[in-house]
Design a protein around this nucleic acid. Sequence first.
DNA 1: ACAATATCCTGCGAGC
DNA 2: TGCTCGCAGGATATTG
Length: 276
Amino acid sequence: MPELPEVETMVRGLRSRVKRKTITNLWTDEKKIIHHPSFNFFKKSLIGQTIVDVERRGKIIVFKFKPKGFLLVHPKMTGHFLALKEKPSSSYLKKKSAHLMLVLSNDLYLVWTDQRKFSRIEYWPDKTISEIPWLKELGAEPLELSFSEFNRLMDNRRTRVKSWLLDQRFIVGVGNIYANEVLWSAKINPEQPVIELSKDQRKKLLIDLKKILKRAIINRGTSVAEYRDISDQEGHYANYLKVYGRPGKPCPRCGREIIRKMTGSRSTYYCPKCQA
DNA sequence: ACAATATCCTGCGAGC
DNA sequence: TGCTCGCAGGATATTG
């Protein structure tokens, strides 16, 4: 599941290869992942556009075009780009669950693969970045967040702290892996209501969140399922996971057995002793 | 305001 | 071995 560190890794890989390149052709076999505009208009209007940069907003990859326009790509569970120097065969595309391919002017084939087809792609040719509806819904970037702003976003929230961390309207980029890891690191129970967290707990939560996200970026993300970077390589942060995906194993801090429990439809992993 | 549930889709593991 | 079946999971919509 790509979260902030995985998407950041993808964006950094993409940037140097696609900057100042023009989309010369485009292929898809799955029109439904294109949420805006209609597929015919998407294809017609995107061909000929020149990319000036690639950025990340939360878990969304944002391609910026010259002189205007934005292509947004959200990987959801299993989406990722592969950058290929040669035209891939149709059997390769099928094997990789490719659903979109952008052909660039430097003969780079940018293939979007998505096993589960949950990913979402939008192209906004005329809007400024602040006018794009999807981006307007997003909360703060955790790596650029001050404690006072973080604290303000928690004001009067009665929801469980894990749900709050996952809710992209407050802070962006945190998914199930890093939510579990940061709560373990900060010794906070995932079901504790946000409103009940002390100032010290909140401070530690933000500090540990930044620390873990940065460390994960340095390690090029976590490959627990099928996440790969644009060169099809795994990230290494899975080696550092303390609780995520480790039910029944001892807590690295106190030795108590790690518990797995469902909150909503999501697995929550925590240490019942450290995170009482 | 918050919780729970269905939805999308596919691969995988459990059970037989 | 090989089949069916249930289910995870990010975000969203809907209902409670």
